[in-house]
Simulated scan of single mutants.
Amino acid sequence: MSGAIHERKWEHLLVSTSGAIVEVAINRPDARNALNGVLMRELIEIARLLRRRTDVQVVVLIGGEHNFSAGADLSFLQEPVTGPTVLETREAIMLGPDMCRAWEEIEAVTIVAVEGYCIGGACALAVACDFRIMGEGSFMRLPEVPLGINMSWNSIPRITNLVGPSRAKRFVMIGEPASAETCLAWGMADEVAPKGSALEVSRGWAAKVASLPPLPVRMTKEAINAQANANHYATSFMDRDQYLLTVRTQDFQEGRKAFLEKRSAIFKGD
C-alpha cells in the first residue's frame, strides 16, 4: 500500500501494512508512551488519513511491548494547560477529545492490543476503538478523579456503553486498576491473551475481519455506532468546561501536590 501514511515521517509512530491491515504502533518508549502534544497530533493525523480508505479493512493500534501507555503526559501536573485567554485555553484542551473522535471515526475496524498498563488518556483512546485485546497482567486505570479533576475527552459515554452505569461510576470515580480479566467480565475487553501475546491475538482478529466482505462490515460498524453514540455528544460536550473548572480548584492543587509527594490527599470540596 502506498500513500501518505507511509510517505510521512512520523516522530512517535511506527506504521506498517500487510494487505488490507494497517498497524500503528505508538513509539515514545523513553516517556512510557505518554501522550504529549506531538504524539496526539500524529494520532489525529494518521486516523484522519485512514478514515475513509477503501483499501484498509482493519487498523491495529499497538502500545509498547511491555506497557501500552502511561496516558496524558504528566507535565499537566506541573503546569496545567493555559492560554492567554480562557477561550484559547478551551481550544487547546480539545487535543485529547479530537484524538479519540478521530479514531472512533475510522471506517475500518479498529483493534487495540494492550500489554501492561493503559492509563488515563490512553484508556480513553482505547475505548474509542472497536475492540480491545488485553494481555494477562495488563490493566486499565483512570486516575483523574482521585487527582481532583473530571474524566474528560468525551470518554464517559463510551465507557458507559461498554460496562453499564454502575461499573462506569466505579471505574471512573474510584480510579483503581481494572485487570484484564475484570475488563473482559465487564465488557471493556474482548479477549484476554497470554502475557506478551496481545498483538499476536489482535493480528488473528484482524485477519478474521479482513477475510469478511468489507461493505457489510463497515455498514454494521456504522449502524451500531450510530445507535450506541446517539446521545454521546449531548452527555459529554461539557466535559472540557468541567476540566477548566476542576483544574482551578484547591482540591486539584491538593491532589496534584499529594501525587507528586506520594502521600494521601485531603480534599475539602473547594
Rank of each mutant, 00 (worst) to 15 (best):
S69D: 10
V217S: 07
T182F: 05
V59P: 05
R28H: 14
L245M: 13
S152Q: 13
R90D: 03
P157Q: 01
W153C: 10
T89M: 03
C118I: 08
I224Q: 08
P143G: 06
G3D: 07
Y233W: 15
L142C: 14
K262P: 00
G175L: 09
V24C: 02
E222L: 12
W10I: 09
G269P: 05
A72M: 14
D73L: 13
C118T: 02
S155C: 09
I149M: 12
E191W: 12
V38K: 11
S18V: 14
N161M: 06
A128R: 03
V209D: 00
I21Y: 00
L147D: 01
A31I: 15
G121N: 05
G175D: 05
A124E: 07
R240G: 02
P97E: 05
R203M: 06
D73H: 11
I21L: 09
I224N: 05
G137D: 08
A47W: 03
A228S: 06
A108K: 04
A124S: 14
G187Q: 06
Q242C: 15
R48S: 08
H12D: 10
G19Y: 12
A168W: 06
R218F: 05
V112D: 00
A206D: 03
A108E: 03
L74A: 09
W205T: 07
A226K: 13
A20K: 05
V59C: 02
A124Y: 01
A185L: 10
A20N: 08
D73Y: 11
P213R: 10
V209L: 08
A4L: 14
G116R: 01
V59N: 03
S264N: 13
I106Y: 03
F237K: 10
I174V: 15
G3V: 05
P213E: 15
N67K: 12
A31L: 15
W103S: 03
E136C: 06
D239K: 02
A126Q: 09
G187I: 06
T249D: 02
A20Q: 05
P84H: 15
V59F: 03
V192N: 00
V127S: 01
P177C: 11
S2I: 12
S138A: 11
L245K: 08
